[in-house]
Write a protein that binds this DNA or RNA. Structure first.
Lengths: 248, 248
DNA sequence: ATTGGTGCTTGATGAAGGTCAATACGATTA
DNA sequence: TAATCGTATTGACCTTCATCAAGCACCAAT
């Protein structure tokens, strides 16, 4: 199919890192202009992933990192007996696959919760580039390091906090991440089910639902299915004050 | 005190990475002999840390990674309201401080649970060396990546498993790590208190104690204070079968 | 030997959240 | 429009673990 080479796929025409609006949230953070152009070459832009599809699966050979460009992912770990644990939710500008360096296999499965686009960062090219660009290498360290801190925050959450505290931290965290991307921090749509929230927070879907209802009765939020409106941010912050959260 | 320079401190005479028995568990894994000698130069060997002392504290400026040479550490995160969460236990050959790259500050506090020795790996020297030695750089990625996986395992543990499963995973994990270091996997001493175990596993010290007692009644282990003897490994493994554990 | 401190064990009780079940909602398809 | 499937809500009940409390074991210091 050599004829296909003459048809330039539409996504090849799209913006690259050096002109991407997510620069400040994503991998290129802190790079000089010329370094960013080098990075452009190492990246496959705008792979589409449709809702419900897996971008990679636990055990897959590790070939690339992926940055979310648009859309929303969950990552899950499945234990032998089928129990599923959601280990994170990922939105624009966030990197997935950092847990795969260790074993050369992906350590979790990434599923698109809506139609998404990702940038693919082939591992070998990235590694070579990182050795040439110290700032990039350092930033990769930083990103992995932050992932560790984030997970430790989640451990504290799961180990020490009650259901309502967990859900409050979750809402606050989501709200802040929306704000960082220029969306409303007061009104947003949950892309995940109650069960997925529950799995992430270590509680059952019924408890998630009940806790949402209680927050609503208290006038803190308005819930309509997946539509969330934050009414009393201060009250929610009050509840989680003194807790180490799920920073992102 | 220039005269002091003529007194060679005793620890300077001790073994370096290239002749360290922990090579295979520690940072030098996978390096060529000559690369290891370069690493020797970048490392301050055998810093002593006494029981109860902090090697570094949450918020301290990040200057070095530390490898445990002998002894046993805990790392803890303290929330604003004083709640303390143990995030890990660390023994010979394990690296601490990987969570500090992200913010240039340590993200947890490391406390020696017995008299210890550590190797200090100054950050800048290590970073420069990593840029020269691709294998070292890759290994640092791997170590951080494994830390992420480990933390995700802990999340699954805390989110999904019951008290006895958690403690079984904990014992199994400890037993395996002892074995990997040439110690008995059947008999060992817990260096941490019941409260610290409980904090790590997300349960109260009373529950830890009760669960140990139950394991003992079932003939799975023998507990005498901090002395543990594993009597029925198969039964313990059976309990955690199908769980994703705390790999180390 | 006595005292105090810290950590461990064990019992009694209660609260938080899990489980089971019935019902309702909402989006997609027939 | 109806039918269906996945998702969400809510209630009733039960299990697990936290809490409170008492007593014990061990070590260190006086």
């Amino acid at each position: 199919m050599s004829a296909a080479r003459e048809i330039i796929p539409i996504h090849a025409l799209k913006a690259v890192c050096s002109s991407c609006s997510l620069q400040e949230l994503c991998l290129p953070l802190g790079l000089a202009q010329e370094e960013m152009i080098q990075l452009d070459d190492a990246i496959n832009q705008r792979m589409p992933v449709r809702r419900g599809e897996a971008l990679f699966r636990l055990g897959d050979a590790f070939r690339s990192l992926y940055a979310v460009r648009t859309g929303f992912f969950k990552t899950v770990v499945v234990s032998e007996d089928g129990r599923e644990q959601v280990t994170g939710f990922h939105m624009a500008g966030e990197l997935m696959g950092l847990d795969a360096f260790g074993t050369d296999q992906h350590g979790c499965t990434a599923i698109a919760l809506e139609d998404c686009e990702v940038c693919e960062l082939p591992y070998h090219r990235l590694e070579n580039l990182a050795l040439e660009i110290p700032a990039l290498n350092r930033h990769l360290y930083k990103l992995m390091s932050r992932e560790i801190i984030r997970d430790q925050g989640a451990m504290l959450l799961l180990g020490n906090m009650r259901a309502e505290e967990r859900l409050a931290v979750f809402l606050l965290n989501l709200s802040q991440r929306m704000a960082a991307r220029g969306f409303s921090s007061r009104q947003f749509v949950l892309r995940m089910t109650r069960e997925e929230i529950g799995s992430y927070l270590g509680m059952k879907l019924e408890t998630v639902s009940r806790t949402f209802s209680r927050f609503q009765q208290d006038g803190w939020i308005k819930v309509q299915g997946k539509q969330i409106e934050v009414l009393d941010l201060a009250a929610i912050k009050q509840l989680v004050s003194g807790c180490i959260g799920l920073q992102h």
